[in-house]
Each structure stands twice: as structure tokens, then as C-alpha cells.
């Protein structure tokens, strides 16, 4: 490879790596969001079990 070939390859590779990095960041974020959703689902389910007798009551 000549020097200019190397630099051209480096430039394109850099862009590629940044896009990959972006995918990585999004993946981490997605994992976090998934965990949070699971947590919230659990919370919602516990609520349903704990207070099943709660009914709609006219207020006032």
C-alpha cells in the first residue's frame, strides 16, 4: 500500500468506526431501557397483586 492509499483507508475506516461506536452506544442505551421496562412491568404487576380489591369509587 502506498502512503496515500493508507490515509484514504484510514479516513474511511474512521468514519466507519464512529458509526460502529454509535451503534454500540445505542445498544447500551437499549439494554438500559429494556432493564427499566422490565423493572416497571414488575412494579405494575406487584401493584395489581397487592390491591386487587381497589375499585372505582365516586369522589366528592
Amino acid at each position: 500500500m502506498t502512503a496515500s492509499e493508507k490515509y484514504v483507508a484510514a479516513a474511511y475506516a474512521f468514519v466507519f468506526v464512529v458509526v460502529l461506536l454509535y451503534v454500540l452506544i445505542i445498544a447500551t442505551k437499549l439494554a438500559r431501557l429494556e432493564r427499566e421496562v422490565a423493572e416497571l412491568t414488575e412494579l405494575a404487576r406487584e401493584r395489581r397483586v397487592a390491591e386487587p380489591e381497589r375499585k372505582a369509587v365516586a369522589v366528592g
Partner: peptide, 17 residues
């Protein structure tokens, strides 16, 4: 800003060549 950084880096490599 991300695309700006990419511009700076690719531009810098081009300047080097």
C-alpha cells in the same frame, strides 16, 4: 456536532496527504 467532528478528522487526514 458528531458530523462536525467527522469533518474535522477526515479533513485533517486529507490535509496530511
Amino acid at each position: 456536532v458528531i458530523f462536525g467532528v467527522l469533518t474535522l478528522v477526515t479533513g485533517s487526514i486529507w490535509a496530511k496527504i
